[in-house]
Amino acid sequence: MLVTERDRVKEDIVRWVEQYGGNRSALIPTLQELQRKYSQITDFAMQVVADALDIHPAEVYGVVSFYSFLDHRPKGKFVIRLCRTLSCDMQGKDRVARQLENDLGIRFGETTPDGKFTLEWANCIGMCDQGPALLVNEQVFTRVTPEKVHDILEGCRRTFGVYALEQKEEHLV
């Protein structure tokens, strides 16, 4: 490969900052792009973003730490967010949660050792009439039952290493 990962991150950031207007209000869209493409917002990336917007890196960190969809720690390729709010709770989210933990071998808040899956709680995701509901990255699943967990995870696994992921990234830029 000709360009190193760092150069690529740098190029991406410069392009996104420009695309989103080049001023401070470009910060969050740029961070969102970083998160989506790299599953993590590294210290290095935060420094580059800060330089591009001429603000202090601590400002960037403050923003990253505020929003639950932005994270400086590495996340899985697939972030699974199960709604824990009342309507989904009443429709059986606990059993779905247990099955997700069992099938992935991790607890909520953790990432699988292979870096493929992160399991998190979400607050109400606006599917309350069809709970329990969860998001896998940007895709929503409703009326999830413990039996359906396996199929949902298999659906993700089928995309490993093949074109699906790459295509998605291109489409987002």
Partner: peptide, 23 residues
């Protein structure tokens, strides 16, 4: 413009802060 998973950003002044690139 997209939010990033924060309920409080529905409050109109927080929403504006967020649009401007802040917490």
């Amino acid at each position: 413009r997209m939010g990033s998973g924060a309920y409080v950003c529905g409050e109109e002044t927080a929403l504006i802060e967020s649009l401007e690139g802040h917490r």
